[in-house]
């Protein structure tokens, strides 16, 4: 078996909406692979199909060598899944949740006991293992879910937005656990996220997914390198001049235009520090006045912007509201 996951033109349609459009990816065993994209891009649908929860409309996928449709039971035995929302039984203790999971996956009593201690230690929950899950914080619940997903020694672990709705400190913690279990347990991990920093920090390779299509796929470094150097943002006094300025830079060949938005132009150049004077003199030579200039190393945000013409954060607000709503309705 060459790949832990291999999809061929896998597609999911809901009525007339194409949620996942002919995606073909392959993930190597032991890889930490990220699906990055805004809410509604099709990330969750894709991993739902890979984890046999949803059936593909067309195309095929193999997980750990098994076909997700024809051999779904074998796929299930080999994967672990951490869903976006909690799927714990909050009336039971953490240990009971793990124990029930072990039983469902056919682990015998001795194996279960040993494994429960191992996974609890991994996510540092041993001390609270016998408390009712209802009393856990959001971060603890997520850690317990990760621990539970690992109980049965899966070869592939799916994490759907593993840090959604968590505070930054907890998020950093979860990142560490994910890295550790990828190294220590050697488990192949596929995670979805819309946090650029998360994908950048964790993943060995990233597929950027938008409207059901993969728009770019590579290591985070390569994705950023491909933009062609540092990002310079120019704010123009008169936004009407944007096209004119872009034409000048295009002709000159000194910079690549990434995008233009709200009177700002994003360009990438090699050795940005040294190029700024040249860039500015080209602008003033054409009589275009510039209000502000900034220079920074490219982030995945810029990569996303470059490939989709939109900033990923534009799509965030509605989702955060939704999560807030979900949490509120659960409290009832």
């Amino acid at each position: 078996m060459l790949y832990a996951i291999e999809t061929e033109e896998i597609t999911k349609r809901f009525d007339d909406i194409v949620a996942v459009n002919k995606i073909s990816i392959s993930v190597k065993p032991g890889e930490l692979f990220g699906l990055l994209g805004p809410n509604g891009a099709g990330k969750t649908t894709l991993i739902s199909m890979l984890s046999t929860i949803a059936e593909p409309t067309s195309g095929t996928a193999k997980v750990w060598g098994f076909d997700v449709e024809k051999e779904s039971s074998s796929v299930r035995e080999n994967i672990g899944m951490v869903f976006q929302g909690t799927t714990l039984d909050d009336r039971l203790t953490g240990r009971e949740n793990l124990d029930l999971h072990g039983r469902l996956y056919g682990l015998d009593g001795k194996t279960r006991k040993k494994r429960i201690e191992e996974v609890l230690a991994l996510v540092e929950l041993a001390e609270r293992a016998d408390s009712i899950v209802k009393t856990y914080s959001g971060g603890m619940m997520r850690r317990l879910e990760i621990a539970r997903g690992l109980m049965h020694h899966p070869h592939v672990l799916f994490l759907d937005e593993p840090t959604l709705g968590l505070d930054p400190q907890t998020r950093n913690h979860i990142w560490e656990y994910i890295k550790i279990l990828n190294k220590v347990e050697g488990v192949t991990i596929v995670l979805t996220t819309h946090y650029m920093e998360e994908a950048d920090h964790l993943c060995e390779r990233i597929a950027i997914i938008d409207h059901g299509d993969i728009v770019a796929l590579d290591t985070p470094e390569a994705l950023k390198d491909r933009l062609g150097g540092d990002v310079i943002t120019l704010q123009l006094e008169n936004p009407d001049n944007i096209s004119k300025l872009c034409d000048i830079y295009d002709k000159n060949g000194c910079a690549r235009i990434v995008s233009r938005q709200n009177g700002e132009v994003f360009i990438t150049v090699k050795n940005g520090e040294h190029q700024i004077p040249h860039i500015l003199s080209l602008a003033s030579g054409a009589g275009i006045s510039i209000l502000a200039v900034s220079l920074r190393k490219p982030t995945l945000d810029d990569v996303f912007l470059h490939h989709t013409g939109r900033a990923i954060r534009d799509t965030r607000a509605s989702e955060v509201e939704q999560v807030g709503f979900k949490i509120r309705s659960r409290r009832k």
Binding site: I53, S74, R76, G85, T86, T87, D89, H101, R330
Partner: peptide, 13 residues
């Protein structure tokens, strides 16, 4: 509603 059903339905049983 509380998600636990997913945990059961994804198990190989």
């Amino acid at each position: 509603e509380f998600g636990f059903l997913k945990e059961i339905l994804i198990a190989p049983v």
